[in-house]
């Protein structure tokens, strides 16, 4: 059982329908607007300013409100006011399901407990699989850096779900992007990601819509991988490091030939599943 988000979990159990899930997701967005959206609604900033602040957010490790103040777009009082609005309108996903009559309160509580327990179980078996692996330090550092970097650079919440033991066959919309690192043992480390996630990552990374430019979003994700692995090697304490340029493939047969061992982890970012894998001999 993977680390699924509550809505998906309920959908797969047949407790809510796809239409209800979609409706609840739409309402969730409506009830949980970003600070930038609230600022635009209140007339404190325009779209242009919001985009500039978002772009700056990708380069610095600061929150939207703090940046809006330091760049002179809003005052502290305005940001505080927006925070209170945000708090007072916030609704949890389960709360929305109950309010819409898709599920009753008692059932929600039961399902939440079950969902939580499964999540913990999945986390525990994942932890065991990683800590028993001969290259656990490299794997742990890589996964942690992925989560941290995705959350910080393109600002996309990311989590680790479960282990995969062989390279999956690719669907039409998936890409493999990988790099070879000599540590000095040679590892091929990469991601298998769907194009929708790559579009989201590219757009967030560059600060403008990249979804119609395949070459550009592939390039952006390749560079993100390069940044992440560069950081992993530093954390891993490697001295002179050798990292090959990112390589993009559409067929899993192409990459598995020169390595005998495979370890992969399924992750999700911004609602899209992807995998991070390690190959070595």
């Amino acid at each position: 059982m993977s680390n699924k988000f509550l809505g998906q979990f309920l959908l797969e159990k047949g407790i809510i329908t796809p239409a209800q899930l979609l409706k609840a997701l739409e309402l969730q967005k409506e009830f949980n607007p970003s600070l930038g959206q609230l600022a635009i609604n209140q007339g404190y900033i325009d779209n242009d300013a919001a985009n500039k602040i978002n772009l700056e957010q990708q380069r610095t490790d600061q929150r939207f409100g703090d940046l809006a103040i330091s760049l002179g777009y809003m005052t502290l009082t305005q940001v505080d006011e927006l925070f209170s609005v945000q708090q007072s309108t916030r609704k949890f996903f389960g709360e929305i399901l109950v309010e819409q009559g898709f599920i009753n309160q008692a059932m929600l509580e039961d399902q939440l407990k079950e969902h939580q327990a499964l999540k913990q179980q999945a986390e525990l078996s994942l932890d065991n699989a990683i800590s028993n692996h001969p290259h656990h330090a490299l794997i742990t550092n890589t996964l942690e850096t992925f989560v941290k970097s995705f959350t910080r650079i393109p600002k996309i919440p990311t989590q680790v779900s479960n282990v995969i033991t062989q390279i999956p066959a690719l669907t039409n919309d998936q890409y493999i992007i990988s790099q070879q690192a000599n540590l000095p043992q040679t590892f091929k480390i990469g991601v298998i990601a769907p194009s929708e996630l790559m579009k989201t990552l590219g757009t967030s990374f560059l600060g403008f819509d990249t979804s119609s430019n395949e070459a550009l979003y592939i390039d952006a994700v390749s560079e993100l991988l390069n940044i992440i692995l560069g950081n992993v090697l530093v954390i891993n304490g490697e001295q002179q490091t050798e990292l090959s340029p990112p390589q993009v493939e559409r067929n899993s047969d192409d990459i598995s030939q020169s390595f005998t061992e495979f370890f992969g982890v399924e992750m999700s970012a911004g609602g899209h599943d992807f995998s991070v894998f390690f190959m070595y001999n």
Partner: peptide, 9 residues
């Protein structure tokens, strides 16, 4: 300007 940042590099 590099993704690499080890002392050696």
């Amino acid at each position: 300007c590099s993704s690499l940042g080890s002392e050696g590099d």
